[in-house]
Design a binder for these strands. Structure first.
Lengths: 141, 141
DNA sequence: TCTAAACTTGACCATTTTGGTCAGGTATGT
DNA sequence: ACATACCTGACCAAAATGGTCAAGTTTAGA
């Protein structure tokens, strides 16, 4: 059970962005340098963040990215959703008429995995970008 | 972020085992049939569970596996640990002298991932095999 | 004592996912 | 016009996943 780097990088980059974008648009190049994430990879990630209206892009010289919402309104849930970081505990397809094993009924531990998913998602829903900013005031990179 | 099938299968198999082992040792073949998990794969999993003293094996005809502890004392944590299902949110090595990015300091979101790990592990520590047995009394497979 | 049931071990492998790179664009401020 | 920065999509190596296969060893019971 692990977090993919896409999810991690997305959050790191957004925290970085949030710290600077009230002055100027922030270029991916800067984020790349500060956070040690490959520029090409960042572009993939920001393309998705933009589609999900988490950031806005400003093209041209001196361009870059800006947050599209208040940091308080950007939850981890939104970020992860944007970059396809899903919490996936069960194989069982929900749409499927059949049960989890190809049998008629729900698999023996189905309720457990559902609970776990909810438990994790709750964490993500209650955490906003703003929380992370405050959290890092003292221990800046 | 997803659960591996090894972890899921381990829990499913143990719940199955716990339901029957007070009568006789339970053969992997039976579990395989009931839960729809490949026998060969189950053998890999039970080998690990045995090393971690979660189950005992009884060889020979009419043999099989038995729980080695009270269901109440087998936490999900123990099971996952046995089959190497780890909760891994951070790349950063804890032993490393250096920081997370190869830089000197902790990465910008380090605290967040630590929190998340704790959040998930807490869930696993508070859940025992016994909880799952009760949970399934009504919705048996 | 023979044999079948069941555990034991370890090698092997195809597929998928991950974590990117590379090579081209296109838009825009100066 | 040109440098800066966004944009897009193809491509790829390596690792993890989710197993299978083969060849044992042990023991209960006929």
């Amino acid at each position: 059970m692990k977090l993919t780097s896409k999810g991690r990088y997305a959050v790191m980059a957004l925290v970085d962005l949030a710290r600077f974008d009230n002055i100027n648009p922030v270029s991916l190049r800067d984020i790349s340098l500060r956070q040690g994430i490959s520029l090409d990879y960042l572009e993939q990630i920001f393309s998705k963040l933009k589609k999900n209206e988490i950031v806005k892009s400003i093209r041209g010289t001196q361009g870059g990215y800006v947050l599209n919402k208040n940091p308080n309104d950007i939850k981890l849930t939104n970020i992860f959703h944007a970059v396809d970081e899903k919490v996936k505990t069960v194989q069982c397809k929900k749409e499927s008429k059949k049960g989890c094993n190809g049998k008629a009924t729900k698999c023996i531990t189905h309720n457990l995995w559902d609970e776990l998913e909810i438990h994790i998602n709750t964490f993500f829903e209650n955490k906003s970008l703003k929380d992370l900013l405050n959290n890092n005031k003292d221990t800046r990179v």
